[in-house]
Nucleic acid binder design. Structure first.
Length: 313
DNA sequence: GTTAGAACTCGGGAAACGAC
DNA sequence: GTCGTTTCCCGAGTTCTAAC
């Protein structure tokens, strides 16, 4: 396992990158004077570039959209109660790094940050299934990770992507997602700090990982805890500026790994490897963009902010 | 192959300006 | 005041980009 650097050392300052909510910014001064001199004398008019104006509008809209109040309602209030014997049975299924007991980590962080990734049988959250789940608590320590294969109960046609074949997961000793949920919930409870939210982090999570999770919870008829917050590193990475002063051409996880020269310590497109990569990327991103954990929380969203899955799927 | 958000392109309308 | 030109704003539509 790769030694994992603590994010705490790089968390963080003020953001000059996140736009102020609301106001439209205009270029005045020299630009205005220059164009005025060329075209129509001394009379001035608010001048802006189209690109800047459009960019600012979008940033502003996004900034407002993500602001919210945080609360610390217990997850226990919104999930089904499971028998202890069931939990013990589920733990015996083939999962590795399952936490055996509460770690008891306490910190000054304003949230528990869980970096996660999934592998699936395809792109459609409606018709495809999760086949691997990995999560790491950024705080580290004992029992800070979970990685498990998931039995999708269907043929896997995209094994060429992640190397996970039907023969590996379509077995009775591999948990189905509904069987894995109690383990996941127990893990989260073991990591969550009192009166502090849980912040899940994924790359392209808003469009991919979180909707998949949402659908799997719904198919399992178990309500996802309403106080879980999610943050997507993809739009954050789009703010990055390269050494030429331009935005990165690609903000894929692979490209970010190369951008930050993060070594690949395993098979790409396996959940835990991508989690490890994303942990490094998140550290670099937050440092480079001067993002604090509270600012990550401000950019977070809840499953209720996403479109609701159709019932009965 | 799916999906959703971001980024981009285009065109219409409005405003400001100069020329008449 | 009217007309033509230029520029900006804004919405709609299209394309791109991530994820497996």
């Amino acid at each position: 396992m790769v030694a994992f650097p603590s994010l705490a050392s790089s968390c963080l300052l003020l953001s000059s990158v996140i736009p102020e909510p609301g106001g439209r910014r205009r270029l005045g001064g020299s630009c205005s004077a220059l164009r005025g001199a060329q075209n129509r004398g001394n009379k001035t008019r608010p001048i802006s570039t189209t690109i800047l104006a459009r960019s600012t509008r979008k940033e502003s809209k996004q900034s407002f959209k993500t602001s919210r109040h945080l609360h610390s309602e217990s997850v226990e209030s919104s999930i089904e109660v499971l028998k202890q014997s069931d939990l013990e049975h589920l733990k015996s299924l083939q999962c590795y790094n399952i936490p055996q007991k509460v770690s008891g980590v306490k910190t000054d962080w304003p949230a528990t940050i869980l970096v996660f990734d999934i592998e699936t049988t395809g792109f459609s959250r409606r018709y495809e299934r999760i086949i691997e789940f990995a999560v790491r608590d950024l705080m580290g320590g004992k029992n800070s990770t979970i990685q498990t294969l998931i039995n999708p109960e269907r043929e896997i046609k995209n094994a060429y992507v992640h190397g996970i074949s039907s023969s590996m997961v379509c077995k009775p000793d591999i948990p189905r997602f509904r069987e894995f949920i109690p383990i996941l919930l127990q893990y989260v409870l073991s990591r969550q700090m009192a009166d502090k939210p849980v912040l899940w982090v994924a790359h392209n999570g808003r469009s991919f990982d979180v909707p998949f999770l949402m659908y799997e919870f719904q198919r399992s008829k178990i309500e996802m805890p309403g106080d879980w917050l999610f943050v997507d590193t993809l739009p954050i990475a789009r703010q990055l500026i390269d050494s030429d002063g331009e935005k990165l051409k690609s903000v894929s996880l692979d490209n970010l790994r190369e951008h930050y020269k993060i070594p690949l310590a395993g098979s790409a497109h396996r959940a835990m490897q991508d989690v490890i990569t994303l942990c490094y990327v998140l550290q670099k991103l937050t440092f480079e963009l001067k993002l604090t954990v509270p600012q990550l929380l401000e950019r977070s969203f809840r499953v209720s902010d996403l479109s609701t899955p159709r019932p009965g799927k």
